[in-house]
Nucleic acid binder design. Structure first.
Lengths: 339, 339
DNA sequence: CTTTCTTGCTCAATCGATGGAGCAACAATT
DNA sequence: AATTGTTGCTCCATCGATTGAGCAAGAAAG
């Protein structure tokens, strides 16, 4: 039925000609306000039918140029290589669509330059909001957006210039540490400190988690060695290298660890397996993040799952209803295994 | 320096006024063809400086409306909940950016209606290409795109109306099955067939993998029971339920399995753990897909990793150089563990 | 001193959709 | 018969960037 060779896409002008009417009538019908524009229902039906037949799709570029609001919402995200960010993106897309917004997501691989580049590109597309997820330098993104009058907010890692929604890292880490310490004591028959590994010492989440880690130790009157806080970065190899170096330096191997993310856990598990030091007794582990296979396959591990649905509800609540730029919303994470 | 309250974004007209020149001069300078347009270098510098100062960002909607090419490339993807699709998206974004294309990715949760909806939305944004990844009904997407003169291609699951890039499912599955069967024989002391679980019987990949699975059995002269091919769908619960039902019906439990994806593997592992039937001897497993934690934590498993970089190189080769609409490119997957 | 080039810019149409303003035609009211 | 209202449209400016065409001023050539 349709023209097979369509060198150009169908426009409202094409439809207007086919229907023997004007472009504005077509426009009015196709975006649903034909009653307000007093278009007759017969003409409306005819236009709708023709649009269907011709496979018409509105040219958003033209439409958005004319409109005042773009209804585009952008998100930058560090990686797609773990369940946490994966579920953030999936939930974000769903909730945006539910609100009639068009989500644009881009992955910036923890590279501050790429973050800025991506934000700039989103501004060009006239986004109405930018959500910076786990951004290395969220305030720079906020500044850039503010200069164009675009609102932004931070997710996962907080900034100081836009509202931020994050996990309650301190409380989560303290509780996680407490549980792992109890496990550990049960296993060893005596109290013993854990090793903290993964994350960047400079980022807010890691430093809060370290505080929670230390607080839990203090509450149980266990002393932690300063050099057992290894905030070596997020990449698996970094955790692996840090553990090798530590084992080398100390001549012994940690028996209990607080691992700061699943991505660091990959490195930790790789090292555990290769090191050969754990054949008689498995280490007691805790991980600030969740992965289904780890939950299924690993016995001596406690995990917390960051509450992605609650976090994104909070994000969209701010988008729908506003919030003070300085507000910091902390969402309690969920404990996956029983205490 | 900048105006703090910027009710509207800066346009080339604002810059033209500030520079005491015309909008076309500004446009020429800012998109780099000012030499062709014979704009003096002093004026060019002045405009560049002003644009910087004002935090100018081009309005893509306006720019794209005027241009002939949008440089936008769309991808639809089923889920972000596994490493395979995660790495597809990440690689896709990188390679698109390298070519100066703007990637738009959207997740359609294996829902055919959402796939079409998303494709339609992408067409509105004037995408030049649509890549359908793991689409339930790729030909419908292709038809929709073709009606607007937009090229498309299929990734992961093939279609008949656009070029398709997929894994070599038959060869991969045959080799995987062969390895698992050898493992299994070594362990049991005698030959024994495997169970096939996961995926949709109606999809091309699953049916090719079943063929490879059967071929490997045939080569080793092992008989497979027809009702041991459980193509129950991809969701973890489905695999779990199918195994429960089978165990119930047969009064016994499979000791070797070919699992069709990591997402099905989640269900399989959950069932294995809960069933209590594997306390004395662990099942021998193979998985057509890869996950780092499974590789690290599970001993008796063989995995194949689909070659995402090669697949996407192929995709962009088609985008850069074209291909016949009927072409089907099969990329050999990579074996992660040694045979 | 005229003609021809070159340089450095500006003008105005254009892309497709939108919506305020306005214009016929007819109906209803005074 | 004249006024007012209603219905069903169309006209046209507009959004911001791009680009072919063209115009002045000065330099070079004849």
């Amino acid at each position: 039925m349709n023209r097979d060779k369509q060198p150009k896409r169908t426009t409202i002008y094409d439809l207007a000609e086919l229907a023997g009417t004007s472009a504005s009538a077509v426009s009015a019908v196709l975006n649903g306000n034909w009653k307000k524009r007093r278009i007759g229902s017969q003409l409306a039906e005819k236009i709708t039918r023709l649009a269907e037949e011709q496979g018409y799709a509105v040219n958003m570029q033209a439409s958005l140029l004319r409109r005042e609001k773009s209804k585009i919402i952008g998100m930058i995200v560090p990686k797609y290589d773990n369940r946490y960010f994966g579920s953030i993106v999936e939930t974000f897309e769903n909730m945006a669509r539910q609100r009639g917004l068009f989500p644009i997501v881009t992955c910036t691989r923890r590279d501050p330059e790429l973050e800025i580049e991506a934000a700039r590109e989103m501004l060009s597309y006239q986004v109405e909001w930018v959500v910076s997820t786990g951004a290395t330098d969220p305030d720079r993104v906020t500044d850039l957006c503010a200069a164009s009058g675009v609102r932004s907010l931070n997710l996962d890692l907080p900034g100081s210039k836009a509202p931020s929604v994050i996990s309650d890292n301190f409380a989560g880490a303290r509780e996680l540490t407490r549980r792992v310490l109890l496990n550990h004591e049960r296993k060893l028959g005596h109290k013993s400190p854990l090793l903290f590994i993964g994350g960047r010492g400079s980022d807010h989440n890691t430093s809060e988690r370290v505080k929670g880690f230390l607080a839990a130790h203090a509450e149980m009157e266990i002393t932690v060695h300063q050099h057992h806080i290894l905030t070596c970065g997020y990449a698996p190899e970094k955790a692996d290298d840090a553990l090798s170096a530590l084992a080398q330096a100390e001549g012994s191997v940690p028996m209990g660890m607080f691992v700061n993310s699943t991505i660091s856990l990959e490195g930790v598990m790789g090292w555990i397996r290769r090191s050969g030091h754990y054949s008689t007794i498995a280490p007691t582990l805790g991980c600030f993040d969740w992965d289904p296979f780890v939950a299924l396959l690993c016995d001596d591990i406690q995990m917390v799952r960051q509450d992605v649905p609650a976090m994104l509800s909070s994000v969209f609540d701010i988008i729908d209803n506003g919030a003070k730029t300085t507000s910091l919303i902390e969402i309690p994470p969920v404990f996956v295994t029983s205490p």
